[in-house]
């Protein structure tokens, strides 16, 4: 069994060349662990321009070999061209399993690659384990209200991994060897291509990647009061999220919405400020490792999922929490 991990780079977002995203290490580490359990081998695949030089870094995450498709034309993401390159590499190295992060790029690529390879797809997995010589994947359904175990029966198999759930491992081990693979890309392979990237909120981590998230709800009363949420997020180095009520009211952009029709997040810490905890909100955040709720209604459903709750006025508690954290973290 040969497993290939798609190592995503932050290409296009960083001005100074490519860097691996954390999800690349998560995919690499999961692939190498699975290969260990199955008695197979794992490799990584990197695509883009200027990526050959960073390939060896994946050695630290369990990869002995990294396949690189390095091409000027791939400097910007193209679903059609990237999928062609990936499927070509999978076929030419005879890989059986392809692992992507369930990132914006991974979710865009995986179904396309699966269709090319006639491979079954298990999306947004939260666990992968070897069973009976094959892979058993666990994934949430119904917005996390259920879990299913899925088996893929086709010879080739594609998985995407929910970000922040799989450990990236701790980097150790020797640099990976890099092997370039040339893929014949024509203009007609670029019928879909990225022509620009705009970064929303520089300085704050993105919701789906953040380790800590502070979200605000309708109880804050108005957009100007999000300053208490932002103040807390700043001390914690956290991303800022919002409930749908807040987004629908136009207080925050849609990008910030957490929940069934917004983003699904699984940070280490989720702080819900003045959010009632409607089922559609919980759907997006209940898999967070620790949940803190601050709400003046002791019966608010958010307390059912919160590890730690304070019943009280957000305008009193949040600034106090911010100032005590500042002290505790020596940021004063």
């Amino acid at each position: 069994m040969k497993i290939i991990a798609f190592a995503e780079t932050s290409h296009g977002l960083q001005e100074a060349g490519s860097k691996f995203k954390k999800v690349a290490f998560e995919a690499a580490h999961a692939a190498s662990r699975l290969a260990g359990e199955l008695g197979g081998e794992a490799e990584a695949l990197v695509i883009g321009k200027g990526v050959e030089s960073i390939g060896p870094e994946l050695g630290g995450y369990g990869m002995k070999k990294v396949r690189v498709v390095e091409d000027e034309k791939l400097s910007q993401y193209s679903a059609t061209a990237y999928a062609k390159a990936i499927a070509f590499v999978v076929e030419s190295v005879s890989a059986d399993v392809v692992i992507f992060p369930a990132s914006a790029m991974g979710k865009d690529l995986a179904p396309r690659v699966a269709a090319k390879l006639k491979a079954g797809l298990a999306a947004d997995c939260i666990a992968l384990k070897a069973e009976g010589g094959s892979v058993l994947a666990t994934r949430p359904v119904y917005a996390g209200k259920g879990l299913i175990d899925v088996k893929i029966n086709s010879p080739k198999k594609v998985f995407t991994l929910r970000p922040n759930v799989f450990s990236p491992g701790a980097p150790n081990g020797s640099p990976a060897s890099v092997e370039k693979i040339a893929v014949d890309l024509k203009d007609s392979d670029f019928t879909s291509r990225v022509t620009g990237v705009s970064v929303a909120k520089a300085g704050r981590p993105d919701l789906t990647e953040a380790n800590i998230i502070v979200s605000g709800g309708r109880g804050l009363g108005g957009p100007e009061n999000f300053n208490i949420v932002e103040g807390l997020a700043d001390v914690l180095g956290a991303a800022v999220g919002a409930s749908r009520a807040v987004v629908d009211a136009g207080w925050r952009p849609h990008d910030d919405q957490v929940g069934q029709t917004g983003k699904t997040v699984s940070p280490s810490l989720y702080v819900a400020v003045a959010i009632s905890g409607a089922i559609q909100h919980l759907a997006g955040m209940s898999s967070s490792k620790y949940i803190v709720a601050i709400n003046k209604d002791k019966d608010a459903p958010i307390f059912q999922v919160a590890d730690y709750g304070i019943v009280g006025d957000a305008f009193e508690i949040v600034p106090e929490l911010t100032s005590q954290l500042k002290k505790a973290l020596g940021r004063e």
């Binding site: 079954g120 298990a122 899925v150 893929i152 730690y308 304070i310 929490l321 005590q324």
Partner: peptide, 30 residues
């Protein structure tokens, strides 16, 4: 090409601790 082997509910989260009803609970939270 895929087959669901089993479905289950995610493990229920234990309702957590209410640490207090005003800002005197903040040190405990920290």
């Amino acid at each position: 090409l895929t087959e669901v082997v089993a479905m289950r509910k995610p493990p229920a989260k234990q309702p957590g601790k209410i640490l207090g009803t005003d800002k005197s609970a903040v040190p405990e939270l920290v």
